[in-house]
Nucleic acid binder design. Structure first.
Length: 670
DNA sequence: CTAGGGTTAG
């Protein structure tokens, strides 16, 4: 009686013929119905049974657990005529795997410890509790369980070892996971090996994971492959994930929903709409359209690629709530500038997790809507039940950095300290960046020096900070420091270091860095790096070198390059080349106010008033305007913005009066 | 005698 069909036929025939089912058969049918989601039928059969044994009770209780009805399961548990260790373990695992019932699991476990009628905790109870420990990330409790397992000789089966590895790894104790694994001289079952591979991936140790994977590869199953594919996808090695995905089938392993969920996440990382569509087609062909991980993965790929039309249609056709998909949609809309739609989706949610909030925060930040970020924070804080977490604060600090809002930034920092929010690498970098961009390079530096485990992001933030503040020596110093610590510089690092050279007109040093980035570090210069070099040559009035580099750019020249070149022409006073740059720019970007002003200034500097007139005429027809540069300051909670000759401030008179007084005083002092 | 509870991958 394996299939539901067989079971139903048997059941119907029994009823028709009027012969009673044995307890054994009824128990089997309850399981069969429960396995196939026919919970009501399972309950009906249980209710009609004239006699029941402990297997009947266990079957009906696990049926309710499977239906996620923990309350009903508990009622049946309490009223059960027969109970054994399986009954307890069933309910325990139900509690462990259902969100919100963790306390019940702990309570039940301690109850099991104090029972005196022959029920003793066994290996299954213990591995189930390790599962809970991993979920709650309480290593001290995990250690207690571990030592209890050693004492009672429950620590060496495959189940025990794999659960211990998983627990230590998920609690963040990789070394201890490794110790459990190697405690068996590396001779463990496949599941434990897979758990260790997963632990390595979680830790970012992909090389170790691969080595482990390829030791005794004949043991590997499709979980091993899925684990490694997921590891690559999650650590930014999307190409490798796709490569393994191909190799997996070549090696005769069946792909399943886990495989496709990971591959979709790799496609998202690559922003590859093409690959996303291929996987989407495969999913449709194989009827995997009911798996929420896969569906939200598809939505995410389309969102990341900006194909919101496709994303929307997949999302709308889902037919059930999927918070991952909604989050992707909110991010997708926001990142592609449609903040109204992002907000509408956000508002449509009855329950908003902090992840959804984070999506909207980061969306607003990405669109540089800093005021919206601050307003959203007030809105968030008005909710009583939730408090901002690190992810949200990173967005808020980002908004502070853009606005150079030092005071609000400091308040966030203070809030982090007060609330004892764990400062991970991302949050730490966001803090340093905020201080640096808000003008407080000293404090950024102080904080930076306090960071013990500096990664490339943090170094890049600090480098950019030094570059912007004109501390080129310090920039070079920490560049060397990061090399000494074995951190490989990336495109951002070089942009920062070149920009430090640019601001200080260090042509030779800049050239050194520029040419070594490809040669010594295998980092290909991007358009911004070329623009930076051209600007450096321009400022140093080395137009020939700028011209030479322009010819060598392998990427199609764009407005950034020509803009930098135009500036170089201005410094050099070369109006002939400037004219060429002007034509290229107007062709590339159309009529932009800023550019006309740049051009007009260029010709004006040469005293070439005919050209200035020509540009001015062009400007008038197109209503080109350049946004004026402004200065601003924060007074208490308000920001006050001034442009040259500004009389729009409500207290202009008072301000100018005070200014006059101050000027008078200064005059008297001198 | 045959049944039920636990581990790894998104």
């Amino acid at each position: 009686m394996q299939s539901l069909k067989d079971g139903l036929i048997y059941h119907v025939q029994a009823i028709k013929a009027g012969f009673p089912l044995t307890i054994f058969t009824s128990n089997q049918l309850i399981h069969l119905y429960s396995r196939n989601g026919l919970f009501r039928e399972a309950q009906k059969l249980f209710d009609e049974m004239p006699q029941r044994n402990v297997f009947s009770w266990n079957a009906i209780i696990s049926s309710h657990i499977k239906a996620q009805n923990l309350k009903r399961a508990r009622q049946l548990f309490d009223s059960a005529s027969y109970k054994d260790l399986v009954t307890y373990n069933s309910l325990l695992s139900g509690y462990v795997s259902t969100d919100g019932y963790e306390d019940c699991a702990l309570e039940l476990f301690s109850e099991m410890n104090s029972l005196d009628y022959g029920i003793r905790i066994d290996e299954i109870s213990l591995t189930t509790m390790l599962n809970l420990t991993a979920k709650l990330e309480v290593v001290s409790y995990g250690r207690e369980l571990h030592s209890f397992m050693v004492k009672t000789a429950n620590d060496s089966s495959g189940f025990a070892v794999s659960s211990l590895i998983d627990m230590y790894s998920k609690c963040g104790y990789f070394q201890e996971a490794w110790r459990v694994f190697s405690g068996h001289r590396g001779v463990v079952d496949l599941v434990s090996k897979n758990a260790m591979v997963a632990a390595c991936c979680r830790e970012g140790k992909l090389e170790v994971a691969v080595n482990l994977f390829w030791t005794e590869p004949e043991l590997n199953d499709n979980v091993s492959w899925n684990t490694l594919i997921a590891g690559y996808a999650q650590n930014g090695f999307e190409e490798e994930a796709l490569y393994l995905f191909v190799r997996m089938e070549e090696n005769g392993f069946r792909r399943n929903e886990h495989t496709f969920a990971s591959v979709l996440s790799a496609c998202s990382g690559l922003r590859s709409c093409k690959h996303g569509k291929e996987v989407h087609a495969w999913v449709l062909k194989n009827g995997m359209t009911s798996n929420s991980f896969i569906l939200s993965g598809i939505v995410d790929v389309y969102c990341k690629c900006g194909n919101m039309k496709y994303a929307k249609s997949v999302h709308a056709a889902m037919g059930f709530e999927n918070s991952f998909s909604v989050t992707s949609m909110i991010m997708g809309h926001a990142f592609h500038g449609n903040l109204v739609e992002a907000r509408r989706l956000f508002d449509s949610l009855a329950e908003k997790s902090t992840v959804v909030w984070t999506a909207l925060f980061s969306g607003y930040l990405k669109s540089q809507k800093c005021e919206a970020v601050f307003e959203l924070l007030s809105e968030f804080r008005a909710k009583e039940s939730i408090v901002p977490d690190a992810a949200i604060l990173i967005s808020v600090l980002g908004a502070c950095a853009i606005k150079a809002a030092l005071d609000p930034g400091k308040q966030i920092h203070a809030y982090i300290l007060r609330s004892r929010i764990e400062v991970d690498k991302k949050l730490f970098s966001a803090l340093v960046d905020m201080y640096s961009k808000s003008g407080s390079i000293t404090y950024a530096e102080k904080l930076f020096k306090r960071g013990s485990d500096r990664d490339i992001i943090l170094y890049n933030v600090m480098l950019a900070g030094y570059a912007h503040h004109g501390h080129e020596n310090k920039a070079i110093q920490i560049f060397n420091e990061m090399l000494e610590r074995g951190i490989k510089p990336d495109v951002v690092t070089f942009l920062a270091i070149l920009s430090a050279c640019r601001h200080s007109c260090l042509v030779e040093l800049g050239e050194q860095f520029f040419y070594s980035m490809k040669k010594d570090y295998n980092v290909l210069p991007e358009i911004e790096h070329y623009a930076c070099m051209i600007d450096l040559y321009g400022r140093a009035n080395q137009l020939d070198k700028a011209k030479e580099l322009m010819r060598k750019i392998p990427i199609e020249s764009d407005t950034i390059i020509w803009g930098a070149f135009l500036n170089a022409c201005r410094v050099n006073g070369n109006t002939i080349l400037a004219r060429e740059a002007e034509e290229r720019l107007l062709k590339l970007e159309g009529d932009i106010g800023d550019r006309y002003v740049q051009l007009a200034n260029l010709y004006a500097a040469e005293g070439n008033w005919d050209e200035v007139c020509r540009i001015r005429k062009k400007m008038k027809g197109k209503e080109a305007k350049k946004a004026a540069g402004c200065s601003w300051l924060y007074v208490e909670n308000g920001v006050h913005i001034f442009i040259s000759g500004d009389k729009t401030h409500p207290r202009t008179e008072a301000i100018n009066f005070t200014l006059a007084l101050l000027a008078e005083e200064l005059y008297q002092i001198s």
